[in-house]
Structures are given as C-alpha cells and as structure tokens.
Computed example of a mutant assay.
Amino acid sequence: MSAGDLSPDQRPLWTAIILAGQRPEGDPMAAYCNVQYKALIPIRGQTMLERVARALLGSPYIGKIVIMAQSPEALKAGLSPDLAEHDGIAFVESSDGIATSIHGVIGTDIAPWPVLVTTADNALLTGEIIDHFFQAHSGQDVAVAVVERRTMLSAYPDARRTWLKFRGGAYSGANLFALHNAAAKPAVALWSAVEKDRKKGWKIFAHFGPWLLLRALSRTISFKQAMAEAGQRMGLRAEPIILPIAEAAIDVDKPSDLELVAKILERREG
C-alpha cells in the first residue's frame, strides 16, 4: 500500500526543509536590500523566511521544519522570538552545495521521511498552495511543483520566468519538491550534479542519454512523460505536480520579483 492509498489522517507528517543559505560571496538581492542574508529580506513587516515558516507551520501536512543555512544562528537571531524558539523548528548548518546538504540529513532523525523541500525566497507560499501540492501527491518517490505558462500569463501577463518547454505546455518551477522515501536519494544525487544548470531543462535531461534529450529538445514528449522516463532510469517514480495558482511560481530572484511580491502581498493583506 502506498501513501496515496491512505486516508489523510493515516499519512505520516512531512518534514519541511527550508533552504535559506546563499553563496559564500554573498547574494545580489541581499546587497540590494541592505541585509546580510537574502532570507532576511523584509516584505511588509516580515522577512521572507518568516513568511515561509509560518505558512508551513499552519499546514496540517507538516510535522517538523528544518531551516538549513551556512549561518543558522544568524538567521535564528533575525527571526521573531516565537519562530526562533519554536519546538517544531530546527536550525541546521549546511555546506555550500544544496544537494549535498539535503542528502546528508534526509531520512535521519534531523529530517525523517517524507521530506518536502522549499526555499526561503518562496515568500508567496500559502496554505492553499501547500494543500494543492499534497492533495495531488499520490505516493510518488519524487514530485516537483510547477505552474503552466498559461496559468501564469493569464494572471500576470508581464511576468518573466524561466520556462521548461515540452509537448503540451511550458512550465516554471514552484520551489516545492517532495522526497517521499529513500528511493528519492538518487534524484538528490543527480541534483548535486546538475545544480548549476537546474533552470536549463535540456542539460538536466542530457544526463539520461541522447534519446530522452532529443525528445525533450524536439518537444515530442510531455513533461510528465519526461519525468517518468528519467525516474525509471534512476529506479524511482517521478512526476510533476501542476499547480493552478500562478503565485506559486513567483519567488524573489531580482528586484522586479521583489516589487511584484510586495504588490501581491499588499493586495492579499489589505
């Protein structure tokens, strides 16, 4: 029986890992906002990290939160006391490599299975987005949240995102990754190999041989089929989860993103 066959009350709670580190040389957005760490950029009275942590704490699917960064104590000092001292939040020091850091803790007492990975700049994360993601998760070893371009452009016609183009649609990542069990570890190892090229879909699929790469480049394969075939090569079940909420794919990578996120939050919060 898979987790997808269980009722919501029977399913194990997820460990949420928030990636809150940054490059050793610093982050351009942190410098732009005059803060030491990108995760502590304030938007309408709360840091991005606080917003992500509160969204996850409010979810009935999440049992524990791990905040991972090179300087966890500095981030902890930048949070409000209720979050900094929360029993359900752990702070873990990471290495410079995202995937290496994740691989070292998943499935341990620090981050027991199943694991959800997200990022500190996912400042528009809400309970509704989290609900959509987990309601669509049916036991896949690896699942990646994405938003289809038509969904994004119907809500934000001027939005500029990185699009992965396949037969039937183009998709932008939504910074939610489900790692369901130990079978997902080869995918994390692959992530380590392609980390610098994670926004270039063709370079990722090149790791699975010329035939899958050719089909991805020629758009003769859907995103779901491509992920399924890539997963089979690693001995696991992998699928995209397509979210119907445009804001799920808006994170903060540049000043125009920050401006857009602030406008959206102003509209939400009044």
Rank of each mutant, 00 (worst) to 15 (best):
A189M: 10
S172N: 14
I129D: 02
A53T: 03
Q46Y: 15
E195K: 08
K203R: 14
S192Q: 15
P186Q: 01
L260E: 08
F208S: 00
I41N: 08
A187W: 14
V144W: 10
F177M: 10
D27F: 09
D251K: 10
A69H: 04
G270M: 09
E239M: 00
I204V: 07
T126L: 10
A262D: 07
V117H: 02
M234A: 03
T126N: 02
T47V: 02
L164I: 07
W163F: 11
D131N: 13
L179W: 12
R268A: 05
H103T: 05
D257V: 07
R44H: 15
C33A: 15
A193T: 10
S95K: 10
Y156H: 14
V194W: 12
I245S: 06
E269C: 03
R150I: 04
M29H: 12
G235Q: 08
D121C: 01
G270T: 05
K185T: 03
S71W: 15
T15E: 07
C33S: 14
V52G: 11
T100Y: 11
A170D: 11
A248M: 13
K203W: 05
V146N: 10
D251Y: 15
G127V: 04
D141L: 08
R215P: 00
D257K: 11
G173T: 08
P157Q: 03
G58L: 08
M1Q: 05
I110N: 05
M68R: 09
R233Q: 07
E259A: 14
V142L: 11
L260F: 08
A123P: 07
Q10G: 02
G231I: 01
E259G: 09
A111P: 05
R54Y: 15
H180C: 07
W113M: 05
T220Y: 12
G63M: 12
S192R: 13
L40Y: 15
S71M: 11
R160E: 11
D197A: 11
R51Q: 06
S138V: 08
F91Y: 15
S154A: 14
A216W: 04
S7E: 15
Q140Y: 02
Q10R: 14
I245W: 06
R237L: 06
S192K: 13
H180R: 13
G4M: 06
F223A: 12
A111V: 10
K200L: 09
Q70R: 11
R215V: 00
L243A: 06
A145V: 08
H137Q: 05
G209Y: 15
D197W: 13
T220H: 12
G270A: 12
R160T: 05
I110A: 05
